Amino acid sequence: MCLGIPMTVIEGDDISALCEGAGRAERISMLLIGAQPPGANVLVHLGTAMRVLDEEEAALIADALAGLDAALAGRTFEAHFADLIDREPQLPAHLRRNLG
């Protein structure tokens, strides 16, 4: 399984940016998405920014990753998945079978 980590751009250009997230700062390749302004949220996988995230999506991903970490450590994790409580999971549109 591959995981993307949400990170926030501190400064950078079209080639790379100093980003912070998940408790660390590192230089990330921006070649796939181009330069982003300071404060922009990006999804990072293997040192490369894959796409720009809005604030809400970045927070949901960060919370889900914190929940996984808590579950693996044997701590309570349910609060990290508050957006999923009291609703049925939904498949993304591209995975839904056309029943019409």
Score class of each variant (00 low, 15 high):
residue 31 L to E: 10
residue 68 L to I: 15
residue 72 L to V: 13
residue 30 M to T: 14
residue 71 A to S: 05
residue 42 V to E: 01
residue 5 I to T: 04
residue 50 M to H: 07
residue 16 S to V: 12
residue 65 L to V: 03
residue 25 A to R: 15
residue 43 L to M: 13
residue 85 I to Y: 03
residue 66 A to I: 00
residue 14 D to E: 09
residue 24 R to T: 06
residue 61 I to E: 02
residue 50 M to N: 02
residue 14 D to I: 00
residue 7 M to P: 00
residue 98 N to G: 01
residue 70 A to K: 14
residue 17 A to S: 12
residue 88 E to D: 15
residue 49 A to F: 01
residue 29 S to N: 11
residue 73 A to V: 14
residue 11 E to Y: 02
residue 82 A to T: 08
residue 6 P to L: 06
residue 14 D to Q: 07
residue 65 L to T: 00
residue 50 M to P: 00
residue 38 P to W: 07
residue 84 L to E: 11
residue 15 I to Y: 09
residue 65 L to I: 12
residue 22 A to P: 14
residue 55 E to M: 04
residue 26 E to D: 13
residue 77 F to M: 15
residue 60 L to S: 09
residue 43 L to K: 11
residue 32 L to E: 12
residue 41 N to C: 04
residue 2 C to H: 14
residue 22 A to Y: 13
residue 82 A to C: 06
residue 82 A to D: 10
residue 69 D to K: 13
residue 92 P to A: 06
residue 57 E to P: 00
residue 14 D to H: 11
residue 76 T to H: 11
residue 6 P to A: 06
residue 65 L to K: 02
residue 12 G to W: 06
residue 44 V to F: 07
residue 71 A to M: 08
residue 17 A to C: 06
residue 6 P to K: 07
residue 57 E to A: 09
residue 47 G to S: 09
residue 63 D to M: 05
residue 39 G to L: 08
residue 79 A to E: 15
residue 80 H to I: 01
residue 97 R to G: 10
residue 74 G to I: 10
residue 44 V to A: 01
residue 45 H to A: 12
residue 41 N to V: 04
residue 77 F to Q: 08
residue 71 A to C: 09
residue 35 A to K: 14
residue 54 D to S: 08
residue 53 L to V: 00
residue 36 Q to W: 01
residue 85 I to K: 13
residue 72 L to S: 12
residue 5 I to E: 10
residue 26 E to F: 03
residue 44 V to Y: 00
residue 53 L to Q: 10
residue 51 R to Y: 12
residue 79 A to V: 07
residue 73 A to W: 02
residue 83 D to I: 05
residue 7 M to I: 00
residue 25 A to W: 05
residue 66 A to Y: 00
residue 98 N to S: 00
residue 5 I to Q: 04
residue 92 P to T: 04
residue 39 G to S: 04
residue 48 T to N: 03
residue 35 A to L: 04
residue 29 S to H: 08
residue 73 A to N: 06
residue 22 A to E: 13
residue 66 A to V: 00
residue 41 N to A: 07
residue 19 C to Q: 06
residue 3 L to Q: 09
residue 47 G to M: 13
residue 31 L to D: 08
residue 57 E to T: 09
residue 84 L to C: 11
residue 98 N to F: 08
residue 84 L to G: 03
residue 80 H to S: 15
residue 15 I to A: 10
residue 56 E to L: 14
residue 58 A to W: 03
residue 40 A to W: 07
residue 97 R to K: 11
residue 32 L to M: 07
residue 4 G to H: 05
residue 95 L to E: 01
residue 85 I to G: 07
residue 86 D to M: 02
residue 72 L to M: 15
residue 77 F to W: 15
residue 47 G to Q: 09
residue 35 A to C: 11
residue 89 P to A: 10
residue 78 E to T: 12
residue 11 E to Q: 08
residue 55 E to S: 12
residue 80 H to C: 14
residue 58 A to D: 04
residue 18 L to W: 14
